[in-house]
Design a protein around this nucleic acid. Sequence first.
DNA 1: AGACAAGGCG
Length: 473
Amino acid sequence: MSVPKAISPHRLSSLLRRQKDPNLALQLFQNPNPQLQSTKPFRYSLLSYDIIITKLARAKMFDQMDQILLQMGRETRFVTKEIIFCNVISSYARARLPHKALEMFEQIPSFRCRRTLKSYNAVLDALLKCGEIGKMREFLVGLGNQVNPDVCTFNILINANCKYGCLDDARNVFDTMLSRGVEPNEVTFATLISGFCSNCKLEEALRLKEDMSKVYGVKPNSSVYVSLIKELCRIGEFGLAFGLKDEMEREKVTLGLTVYTTFISALFKVGKKDEAHKILEEMKGSGLKPDTVTYNAMIHGFCMENDLNAAYKVLDQMVKEECKADIITYNIIIGGLCKDGKWSEANDLFEDLPRLGYKPDVVSFRTMFVGLCNCRRFNEAATFLDEMLFKGYIPSSEGRQKIVDGLCQEGDMKLLVKVLSSLGNANSIGVDTWELVISMVCKKESLSNVSEKVDTLLVPNNFLYRPKEGKLY
DNA sequence: AGACAAGGCG
């Protein structure tokens, strides 16, 4: 019988890297030599810590990740690299855990690792991604004098202003960075141009694209083109959009998946399926395989035309190509089914999501709720509402309007009161909803009855209309 | 090597 050979720390790293399943990777990490009853502790390399931590962070297995972090902190053979913590911070941002991101930042020194601008920027970006603008400002002020912002810091601040529609402020940050001698890079311009495009300022976006090469000597990259193409398609300027695609080819900017997907999505939206298929073929011809985003764009296109069969065919295609559908794929299909009047089928699919391995998100709940309202299934919608509120999801303002509107039209005051009560308890009524209710009731009843009606809506259910909190979510 | 930008649902 041959004696099993122990695997080396180096070999463990390469095995870990290849293991796609985070659970199996963790098992492997914790017990690299299951055949050997070794008494000596395994000498993990920094790289293997790096790989397993990054894998666990991406899989949002934070408890397990914390254990490994602690274990790494006890190692004395090497100095931990800051980039590992940056990755952890980004993962917390993706999981919408801003507190954990900040906590990680605080703990970096306890790993005998020096904090630099890198982790500082990672936190700044994490707070932005989580919508924690107040915390972001605090963080900036708190460490203001200790850091010298670099391009990346400025890029994050520009992005923050763009995300909140403050294009002038974004420009100001850009000017500040110039005046402080920090050279803008392609990310800076891509961020600004994307901001202009998504705020309907195409002219400025195009001008900046010209300036970036002429004035600043930075060549427009694929992201810049994608933003411009997307906006041009949105306003129906397909000719100009294709013109930019030609320009990319002339300028030898790589036509990546994102460019093709942008065109496919836009063409599907205006019903130009033939052209979309031409682009799809061209894309495949250049050796690119459609990914989840590409397929989702197609499924969305078919759903908008109520062609559920074609949409399901794309889903089959995804399975064949081993391209994993995600929650967005299913949100699109649920919306499509409702749009086609198939609310019951949509509801079955919604209920089935956990079994299929997907966790319904805000959009799933809101889509299903609006869908039920649009199909005028108000009883089902009211039941669904309680379920979603219980889970902590609040319907969109469109959804709230739809159900109140619908119940008023149906004259189902009893259910209306129940729905308002549920929304009230979730503290998510909003002025808009109240205005709607009152105007609806006014239309329905003679004026003398209105106050009485509003009273029955208010008193027995303990509604408190608090103007300060009557704000939209 | 890797932080920051860019394509899909509401």
